[in-house]
């Protein structure tokens, strides 16, 4: 795949913590409006990979590019978020003492400096944006409830809703269905699939059934590098993958 077709480009990235190679010569390309699933056992380097993309961890070696020429290794978390990369954490992270509406309002793109926030007034256009996000994640009825009162699944959706409101080009979603009921998982699958028409979505997930239900293209990570990549059928029949991951 050519570099200029992809929106996210990792090439030969390595990072180690105290001698342990968490990421080992990892190369990965994500296309525009692609929905990509990344699977791998615990310790395969999934979360570290997200940390590298979002600027939380700096790689020891390798290149990380956003679009054609933005070098992400030289940016910090806030800059990367403003470039258009949103991240959902593994544990649902919303502002529990704020209402659902306020959570989304804080996520709204633009207005990132102090003074503009001090004198901020919400306009009609922005209200509509928040309402449309609420509709997408199906939390219209909870608009004025405290985020802390939401169920686990609703918090996950709210966090995804905050990402959408931020309007990023790439959404990195870490284990969106952990702890969800079957119905909730199904709705999440629909939600993520629909998002992939407007954003690139990268989902890290353990739940194979869920991955099967949404994935077009799957990447298997193992010991910090890519073990296999392709459609779900191809992955499931890959001997190496069966040995290290699906085998047991």
């Amino acid at each position: 795949m050519e570099k200029n077709e992809s929106i996210l480009y990792l090439n030969n990235v390595s990072v180690s913590f105290d001698g342990f190679k968490a990421i080992n010569e990892l190369s990965l390309y994500i296309d525009k409006n692609e929905l990509r699933c990344i699977i791998g056992a615990n310790g395969a380097g999934k979360t570290t990979m997200m940390d590298i993309i979002t600027g939380k961890t700096k790689p020891d070696e390798g290149e990380v590019y956003f679009g054609d020429h933005i070098d992400l290794t030289k940016k910090d978390e806030a800059e990367i978020a403003n470039l258009g990369i949103g991240r959902k954490f593994q544990k649902p992270t919303v502002f529990e003492n704020h209402s659902v509406f306020e959570n989304l309002q804080l996520a709204l793109e633009g207005h990132r400096n102090i003074l503009s926030n001090l004198f901020y007034e919400l306009n009609e256009d922005q209200r509509n944006k928040i309402d449309s996000s609420l509709e997408t994640i199906g939390l219209e009825a909870e608009k004025y409830r405290m985020a802390g009162e939401l169920s686990h699944g609703q918090k996950q959706w709210l966090e995804i809703g905050m990402l959408i409101t931020q309007n990023p080009q790439v959404l990195l979603v870490d284990e969106p269905v952990a702890g969800m009921t079957h119905q909730e998982s199904e709705r999440t699958a629909e939600l993520l699939t629909s998002l992939a028409t407007r954003h690139s979505v990268v989902v890290v997930e353990h739940d194979m059934e869920f991955v099967r239900s949404i994935a077009r293209r799957v990447t298997v990570l193992h010991q910090g590098s890519v073990l296999a990549e392709g459609t779900m059928d191809k992955i499931q029949n890959d001997r190496k993958v069966i040995e290290v991951y699906l085998g047991d």
Binding site: T93, V94, H98
Partner: peptide
């Protein structure tokens, strides 16, 4: 609102681009 958001979940605020 942001200040209280930092109190409750600082990394979320940072990854939102603030």
């Amino acid at each position: 609102s942001l200040v209280m958001a930092i109190r409750d979940s600082e990394s979320r605020v940072r990854f939102m681009g603030y």
